[in-house]
Simulated scan of single mutants.
Amino acid sequence: MATGETGFEDVSFDLISVQYHSLKAGHDYGQYVRDARNAGLEDVASFFEEMMAQDSERARRCHDFLTQVGGTPGS
């Protein structure tokens, strides 16, 4: 695999980046859920919860792929 400017293989860097942003977004969505609930908008809160679940799954899949492309199991 090609090695990018970071010294990491491009695919590893890409997976780490997607994983980070998915986890960060999932954290932020928690506040969005609270805001929607405080505004009495349960349908909007449910939408944000769906997004949070999708990002959590995306981060988990990135972790799995990272173990395949050279990460260490359990890291």
Rank of each mutant, 00 (worst) to 15 (best):
T67P: 01
A45R: 00
R34I: 04
R60P: 00
A59Y: 10
G7N: 14
S17Y: 05
F65P: 02
L66A: 06
Y20S: 09
D14S: 12
S17V: 04
F8I: 02
M51V: 15
D64L: 05
L23Y: 07
T6Y: 13
D55Y: 02
E50D: 15
T67H: 08
Q31G: 11
V33R: 00
T67R: 04
D10W: 03
A2R: 14
Q31T: 13
R61Q: 15
A59Q: 10
M51Q: 09
A59T: 07
T3M: 12
E50F: 02
R34L: 01
T6M: 14
M52H: 11
F8T: 03
C62V: 08
S56N: 11
H27L: 14
V33N: 00
I16Y: 12
T67S: 11
G70N: 06
M1Y: 08
S46Q: 12
R34H: 01
Q54N: 13
L66C: 09
D28T: 05
T3E: 11
V18I: 14
A36N: 03
G26K: 14
M51A: 15
S75E: 14
A53T: 15
R60L: 05
E5F: 12
A36Y: 03
S75Y: 12
S17A: 08
A25L: 08
G71A: 07
D14E: 12
F13E: 12
D14W: 02
T6E: 15
D14G: 06
A25S: 07
A2C: 04
E42Y: 00
H21T: 10
D55N: 14
F13M: 06
D10T: 14
D10R: 12
L15W: 01
V11S: 09
Q31Y: 04
Q68C: 05
M51P: 01
I16K: 07
S17W: 06
D43F: 02
Y20G: 00
F48M: 04
A36P: 00
Q54H: 07
Y20Q: 03
R37N: 04
Q19H: 10
P73V: 10
A2V: 10
A36V: 05
Q54G: 10
L23W: 05
D55T: 04
H21V: 05
V18N: 03
V69A: 07
D55K: 07
H21K: 08
G26D: 13
S22N: 13
T3V: 15
R37I: 09
G4Y: 07
L41R: 13
Q68M: 15
